[in-house]
């Protein structure tokens, strides 16, 4: 049997962590893009489209991310659409992230006083002009902190991709545990590495909150 030193364990985990980071980044970026699109759709106030966004949000917020991943991975291949663990992880994390961000951003837009819309309207600004010059500049400031804060959930959510066989930090931890039989040590390392990823994000979120919220 091969002996694993602490450094060997850490080294392997760090290697796998790259995939966690990459998966988080891609999921976050694509989730943000989808959420932007959905927010735009919601803002049109078209009843059918708004309903669609509502159902979308309820659906992906109201079901466990793990089930979404299972459905993406096993479900899609059942209906004849082959998808890799990597693809399924990105797809489900994107859906999950966008559903939460749409809802977070809705809150940010809705907290702006109705008077901002009315003042713009009586000055003759169109709906899009109001969005662009009045609403979005204010809403994005408010949205920064909770959005960054939510990225912590995305990072932690990537751990579920281990279940469908994608080798990221958690999966690597499980594998190393099987080889070393030192669960406490291995998973403590895993947890620490997640913490090392997430803690700076929540610090950043707190900083942004202070910066943008107190001033107003």
């Amino acid at each position: 049997m091969i002996e694993f030193s602490n450094w060997d364990i850490l080294r392997n985990l760090l290697f796998a962590m790259q995939w966690t980071i990459l998966l988080s980044l891609i999921a976050f970026i694509s989730g943000t893009s989808v959420a932007l699109g959905l927010t735009a759709v919601r803002l049109t106030r078209n009843p059918v489209m708004t309903r669609f966004v509502k159902v979308y949000v309820e659906l992906f917020q109201g079901t466990p991310l793990l089930m979404q991943m299972f459905l993406c991975f096993f479900g899609l291949s059942m209906i004849g659409y082959e998808i890799s663990a990597w693809g399924a992880a990105i797809l489900s994390l994107t859906l999950f992230t966008s559903a939460f961000l749409v809802e977070i951003w809705r809150g940010c837009i809705d907290t702006l006083p109705k008077g901002q819309w009315e003042a713009s309207r009586v000055l003759g600004l169109s709906f899009l002009q109001t969005l662009r010059h009045v609403i979005l500049p204010q809403a994005t400031r408010v949205a920064f902190a909770p959005t960054v804060g939510f990225s912590v959930q995305v990072v932690k959510g990537t751990a579920l991709a281990s279940v469908i066989g994608f080798v990221e930090l958690t999966k690597a931890g499980t594998m190393l545990n099987n080889a070393t039989f030192e669960p406490f040590k291995v998973f403590a390392f895993v947890a620490l590495l997640y913490f090392a990823l997430c803690y700076p994000l929540s610090l950043c979120s707190k900083y942004l909150e202070k910066k943008y919220h107190v001033a107003r």
């Binding site: 006083p113 003042a119 009586v122 003759g124 169109s126 709906f127 010059h133 009045v134």
Partner: peptide, 24 residues
């Protein structure tokens, strides 16, 4: 109707109780 209100805005100004200035 939106477009009508915008045309109207050219001849009718309005001031609100809460000012509604754009804070940014």
């Amino acid at each position: 109707e939106d477009i009508q209100v915008r045309r109207l805005a050219l001849s009718v100004g309005m001031i609100f109780q809460n000012f509604n200035l754009f804070p940014h």
